[in-house]
Design a protein around this nucleic acid. Structure first.
Length: 113
DNA sequence: CGTTTGACGGTCC
DNA sequence: CGGACCGCCAAAC
């Protein structure tokens, strides 16, 4: 059973799964938290989130502007926005309205499970 | 093994 | 405010 899942991939998946309901974060924040050095690694890792076995809520991860930059990589481009709205996140024009309001920082130490 | 790309970010103009 | 450019780093080609 070889998963060939690089360390940073695992880290990104784990942190992403730690994102609370109705909360979002950015690639740069995760990258900075994991000290990956580049936010692109986060996006790349999340790209595999679909092929990965884990349930990674990639829709809760947006870019610095709060824009749903990765919606194009979802099974359906509209799925990401629908999921966010379903969680109570106000999304307009493929962009989170009050990003700062829903923003979640991994360094804020999550409330266990 | 060199080049290109990529779900980003920040600075510069 | 927005377009242009560079930096990061790994995978794909």
């Amino acid at each position: 059973m070889k998963k060939e899942t690089p360390n940073y991939f695992h880290q990104v998946f784990e942190v992403t799964r730690r994102i609370p309901y109705g909360r979002v974060t950015t690639y740069g924040t995760i990258a900075n938290y994991l000290t990956l050095g580049s936010a692109r690694m986060v996006g790349w890792a999340l790209n595999k989130s679909f092929t990965a076995e884990n349930d990674v809520p990639a829709h809760r991860v947006v870019n610095r502007k709060g824009e749903l930059s990765g919606r194009n990589h979802f099974p359906m481009p509209t799925m990401m926005q629908q999921l966010l709205e379903s969680e109570g996140v106000v999304v307009e024009n493929d962009t989170i309205k009050d990003l700062k309001k829903y923003f979640w920082d991994p360094a804020e130490e999550w409330e266990e499970d």
